[in-house]
Design a protein around this nucleic acid. Structure first.
Lengths: 205, 205
DNA sequence: CACGGATTTGAACGTTGTTCAAGTATCTAT
DNA sequence: ATAGATACTTGAACAACGTTCAAATCCGTG
């Protein structure tokens, strides 16, 4: 085998992902071109295709990293209060953490969803796994709110709640769609999540 | 002036929008190319640019039409039950109408949001107006639910509720993101909206 | 009918992602 | 250490894209 080759490939792979991530964060994934990427990495354009099937696969890997960073941010910030607040407070906190990550990384985060339609079946499956982890954080406090519900139903509700918060963040971020400041978006998240929790509590009783 | 010219331009404009709309509905807006569009319309590629500033402007116009059709569908289906059901039932109905439109026109609807980042300031402003109409349908039943809230607050909540439903539909539609059938998505919408309404009602009392 | 300005045309331009024959580096065997 | 074989990298070339603009065409008018 070619040991030196494998090491070089690994280094280049890392460099390409690093550069692509920075460029996407600065200018969006649409502005990422193979030639510029190769030029900054100091390699030939063809070298990209030795490592990644195509540019879409590269962007999908960057998106995977972004998803992991998001999940990590949620996990870290959440353990601090996991055993403290009420389920309602925990769910609101989760939503706010999600929002703050998106505000801090708008273009990287956008890339995940804007690029979603361009990836193959395998990449989509991988992202589903990544998302399950994110949903897992919501499931825990939700179980306390829905003690009588089955596991499947809790997951379904968790997904719905995640999607709802995602929608508020998503439209809130798009300038001019629902013109709002991050503060207003945070207010909306709080309102929806709290109302949801109160509504669920009513039905329980 | 050239009367014949203006008529021809108007006819071509309509034909281009019609063709573009059908092609987007069939293959997504990314598959729409200037050359194919011109070929099917029986005109030169340059002719497109006599009528639209660029391809983005053309897609923006198609999206505008789609938005109008959506608003119309909501309005039509809603008048039938506006004076009948409870505010809660009306809001759930709104969400389901939204979902059914999206299921019927997935690619046209996706184009609105996937293309959002590519349009100029003026187009974005126009869409904000279009969206205000959609929000207006939510505001009416919401006022009954929040009789003590100011108009601004009701609009803010209406936007949040719309965004929440939008998020559920949006992620629900993306295959593999949160793998779900349209039925499951409908269940999620019902659950979120009802819980929201119940929660709001609790706080009122 | 012929003239002149407005309008339409499509070849050409600059970029894009992607490929693959040719060149270069690496490993093995003597 | 060297030669041969194998694997890898390279960047010019390709097809397709949106967009432009000199040239051709059409239209209303004197």
């Amino acid at each position: 085998m070619a040991a030196k080759t494998q090491i070089r490939r690994e280094k280049l792979r890392e460099a390409l992902l690093e550069i692509a991530e920075r460029r996407i964060a600065e200018n969006g994934y649409r502005a990422l071109t193979a030639r510029e990427l190769a030029a900054e990495a100091g390699c030939a354009v063809g070298a990209i295709y030795n490592i990644f099937k195509d540019m879409d696969a590269l962007v999908a890997d960057v998106n995977s990293r972004t998803g992991a960073r998001l999940e990590q941010a949620v996990a870290e910030a959440f353990v601090q209060t996991a055993n403290a607040g009420t389920p309602k407070g925990q769910l609101v906190l989760l939503g706010r953490i999600y929002l703050s990550f998106v505000v801090a990384n708008p273009l990287l985060w956008s890339a995940i969803f804007e690029h979603a339609g361009r990836v193959g079946e395998d990449f989509a499956a991988r992202r589903e796994v990544e998302n399950a982890r994110l949903i897992g954080h919501i499931v825990k406090p939700l179980r306390l709110l829905l003690p009588d519900a089955g596991a499947d139903r809790v997951v379904l509700v968790a997904r719905a709640l995640f999607a709802a918060v995602h929608g508020i963040v998503s439209l809130g971020l798009q300038r001019r769609f629902l013109a709002e400041s991050p503060d207003e978006v945070a207010t909306q998240i709080t309102f929806i999540v709290e109302a949801f929790c109160d509504g669920v509590a009513v039905r329980k009783g």
